[in-house]
């Protein structure tokens, strides 16, 4: 059985597909969040060096991962929208930006809370912190550029260019702890090595990441649906939908 991808590239059919998928992702996000927080607060052992304060990683690390990952996804869909002129991909890119900016903000904020007891400072001008801050600026630049342009197609394309130019920053953030000798600790989890942490900590963090992932998908689908309705408000199927709702 092959899926007709072109069918779901049309905003009208994607609207209903997204509507069916949102409940599953929302429930998955809530369930994973509860499990992840339970493991994070009650199962994972206290760190022998960092005490209880380390538990903030269960929020911080997933948020930081998602902030970078969502930027890549956003730039990918924006690029697809620019290259193939598909409206839906650009709408998805626009829908991703606020969620990505939120995760970037959470990563910075929880990082500050973690930094105060550990480093004795809310903020240090360290390579990783600075480049994560630049990532927040990039998200804000993308959103404000799109907000300033009235024509949605031009907004999509202009946003795509700035998103693609900003992609340069992602490897810089990711590898900053390796390239520069910074205060921020190196990655504790990697694909190639065995993790440098207790198994329950790792499981908790991975579950929290999955929860963040599911949450992002649900939020992005919801926002895409709103954008679709806004842009397609003059079409027949939206009028039908409005008629049915009355």
């Amino acid at each position: 059985m092959s899926i007709n991808w072109y069918k779901y590239a049309s905003p009208a059919s994607f609207y209903f597909l997204a509507g069916r998928m949102i409940p599953y992702f929302s429930i998955a996000a809530i369930v994973l969040l509860i499990i992840g927080l339970y493991i994070g607060f009650f199962v994972a052992p206290t760190d022998f060096q960092q005490g209880e304060a380390y538990r903030i990683i269960f929020i911080h690390v997933p948020a930081a991962w998602m902030s970078m990952f969502l930027y890549l996804v956003m730039a990918f869909w924006a690029g697809i929208g620019l290259a193939f002129n598909t409206r839906l991909s650009s709408m998805v890119a626009t829908a991703i930006a606020p969620t990505g900016a939120m995760f970037t903000f959470i990563a910075l904020w929880t990082g500050a809370w973690w930094g105060k007891p550990m480093w004795g400072a809310w903020w240090v001008w360290d390579a990783r912190l600075t480049s994560e801050l630049i990532l927040l600026f990039l998200y804000i630049g993308f959103m404000s550029l799109q907000a300033a342009i009235d024509d949605p197609r031009r907004a999509d394309k202009a946003g795509a260019v700035i998103a693609l130019v900003g992609v340069v920053n992602i490897p810089i953030i990711y590898f900053s702890v390796q390239w520069w000798n910074t205060l921020h600790q190196g990655a504790s989890v990697s694909v190639t090595q065995s993790p440098k942490m207790a198994a329950s900590m790792l499981v908790g963090m991975l579950i929290m990441s999955l929860a963040a992932w599911m949450y992002s998908i649900a939020m992005i689908l919801m926002r895409t649906r709103v954008i679709i309705l806004e842009r397609e408000r003059h079409t027949a199927w939206v009028a039908e939908l409005k008629g049915a709702a009355r």
Partner: peptide, 12 residues
């Protein structure tokens, strides 16, 4: 707007 777009890219 141009400052918001360009200044982050100037940082390096």
């Amino acid at each position: 707007l141009v400052s918001l777009l360009v200044l982050p890219l100037y940082i390096p």
